[in-house]
Design a protein around this nucleic acid. Sequence first.
DNA 1: TAACTGGAGTTCCAAGATGCAACCCTGCGG
DNA 2: CCGCAGGGTTGCATCTTGGAACTCCAGTTA
Lengths: 154, 154
Amino acid sequence: MRRIDTSAWPCTIARAADVLGDHWNLLIIRQACLGTRRFDGFQTALGIGRNILSQRLSRLVDEGLLVRVEYEESRPRYEYRLTDKGREVYPILATMAAWGERWLTGPEGTPLVLHHTSCNHDMHAVVVCDKCQEPIDVRYVRAKAGPGFPRPAS
Amino acid sequence: MRRIDTSAWPCTIARAADVLGDHWNLLIIRQACLGTRRFDGFQTALGIGRNILSQRLSRLVDEGLLVRVEYEESRPRYEYRLTDKGREVYPILATMAAWGERWLTGPEGTPLVLHHTSCNHDMHAVVVCDKCQEPIDVRYVRAKAGPGFPRPAS
DNA sequence: TAACTGGAGTTCCAAGATGCAACCCTGCGG
DNA sequence: CCGCAGGGTTGCATCTTGGAACTCCAGTTA
């Protein structure tokens, strides 16, 4: 059975989860953020099967997170580059990294440190409200229906 | 073949992706954040198969994102509640919601609006650096090896 | 007392998805 | 002319999914 398609649910999380709720897609974007662009680069960095990688890259291109660019004219040679849509997934990854560091790190310490070059500090991602700048907590957030919420078919 | 296990990779994103890189897990946590606690509640809200749901809930309990609590003594009745570890996934979901709203919403507008009760505004999640409070962008973040990064076996 | 109901899961099965390894195609370098 | 590098496809055995039916158990209803 094909995995259920949640991309049309009236929920932005469900829609995002349709593309991002796949560990390979997440890791491919992460890898792309680290500068990898070529098929073999992804393959060896992630140890993913070539067929799966091929499938995922096409999906990410279809969804507009990556673009496939020919970088050599004479022979078929392509590379995959992040689009703005793809690049903006990074905050999600950084948030996951912060969560992973907090909850999934053993006594040996975190394997990865993110350095923010614009302020020159090692950083952690924090998710804040754009209005009050305070870190968010589920208990103080309510989800309401917005303009695009389907009205009860009446 | 079983899906490859990335939970021990020296990368907090890969580790987090091992649990969160599954759309059902994400949606179950989302649903739990909305207040759902019971098996049938998740089942009907998400339309997920009962077997899959059962499997995912056990996984989330094993990973410590949920706890299974008996809420009726006479008969077997359990509910699933978020732990702190599970609750702290919310910022990731909120970030995904913001991304989904920006990139996956049609002309009809967003189906969901998040209301921040502590400042009483409709909000969007923004991911900032904890040191300088500026929104982050991949191009100004470098990943470095941290203390837990395996040293090259020499 | 028998049948019914609701909650919480299992069990079964067919259709897909995954991982792995081997194979294909195209110019260039030696 | 051989081999290689880059970028994929193909085949296969094994898992995972989704759907639906079935199980258990203790109240409730008739």
